[in-house]
Computed example of a mutant assay.
Amino acid sequence: MLILNKNDIKKVFNMKDAIDAAKEALLIFSRGKSVVPLRTNIDIPKYEGQSLFMPAYVEGLNSVGIKIVSVFPENAKKGIPSVPAKMILLDGKTGDVICIMDGTFLTQLRTGATSGAATDILANKDSRQGALFGTGGQAPSQLEAMLTVRNLDVVKVFATNREKTQGFVEKMNNELKRFSTKIIAAESADDAVKDADIITTATTSKNPVFNGKLIKKGAHINAVGSYTPVMQELDEYTIQNADKIYMDSKDAVLSESGDFIIPIEKGLIDDSRINGELGEVISKKIEGRTFGDEITLYKTVGIAVMDVVTAYKIYEKALETKTGTFIDL
């Protein structure tokens, strides 16, 4: 059995690799070439946490996997990850575990990558300004993915904690300096969104994080948070007025995300507002952006096929480069 930690993964797999894996995973999923049950979500109210169990089988890769990921916001006060996770990869031919890897970094990587894939497919090629809402564990990979697929002049970052935002901006300007993009702290949510060509939200907010009436024509939005029915990053105006809406999994989003569950329950929209899944755009079953002034929206809640495909690709590269630690059980 191969054990891969965060540093092992970073040695063999970069964001471009992850975006390619995300596109492959979304295509596999939308073509029905995988088995992906809805994830099991167990609330742990005593510690204000949740543990999620996300299994999937991908026949084409002969691979099975399950990611166990928890969300414990109070962990941040203890100096430990607030989203700890482990990914368990099995051989689809034998059912035996072949790899255990750092699921926290895998989650960050593949979630950033799915936004990167959506941005690459849906955002205008001449996009120059980005907006990022949130500075938590997801934020670095979301920012890196945005910069990997579009040559942006500036990205404005907004979060409720101004001091933390400034620290994040300084760190990202150093870590992502190879992109030559100016990363700055926005003065307000309005300041971040009003001229943005690409908007990414990666928060745990239960209330909309920006005013949808300020979104410019031609903008693309990646909605990453709101993975439970009570979370809501996007206001109802945005959901009602986006020109085209795509999802990683329509069933998963409509079962899990307050961004859509809340306005549907209010009778403001129905599922006819949704154009389809991003994998269907990749396969050319449906159209993506057709005009430059369209506002496109991609909503992801995360599906286990992305974990399995990305983990399998990492595992392959680790074997090729003899990276990681083998153990016998």
Rank of each mutant, 00 (worst) to 15 (best):
317 K>L: 10
167 G>M: 10
16 K>Y: 08
43 D>M: 12
48 E>M: 11
85 A>P: 04
64 V>W: 13
251 D>R: 13
179 F>A: 00
129 Q>C: 01
65 G>K: 03
230 V>M: 10
168 F>H: 01
211 N>G: 02
328 D>T: 08
235 D>P: 05
95 G>V: 13
160 T>E: 03
217 K>D: 15
235 D>H: 03
175 E>Y: 08
313 K>F: 10
128 R>A: 15
190 D>A: 14
225 G>Q: 07
255 S>H: 14
153 D>G: 12
259 D>F: 09
103 G>L: 09
198 I>R: 03
283 S>Y: 06
292 G>I: 10
13 F>R: 00
37 P>V: 10
126 D>G: 07
93 K>V: 07
261 I>Y: 13
246 Y>E: 10
51 S>N: 14
28 I>K: 01
149 V>H: 06
150 R>K: 14
168 F>L: 00
107 T>Q: 02
103 G>W: 08
165 T>N: 07
2 L>Y: 11
310 T>S: 11
103 G>E: 10
130 G>Q: 08
108 Q>F: 02
70 S>E: 10
290 T>W: 00
324 G>H: 03
122 L>N: 09
310 T>C: 08
106 L>H: 11
204 T>I: 13
59 E>Y: 14
235 D>T: 09
281 V>K: 07
262 I>W: 02
34 S>F: 07
127 S>Y: 06
141 S>W: 04
183 I>C: 14
320 E>G: 11
14 N>C: 09
189 A>K: 11
42 I>K: 01
31 R>S: 15
199 I>V: 12
36 V>E: 03
104 T>I: 04
6 K>Y: 00
288 G>F: 12
237 Y>F: 14
210 F>T: 09
80 I>A: 13
177 K>G: 06
288 G>R: 11
163 E>Q: 04
105 F>I: 12
60 G>Y: 08
284 K>Q: 15
145 A>G: 02
83 V>I: 15
76 A>Q: 12
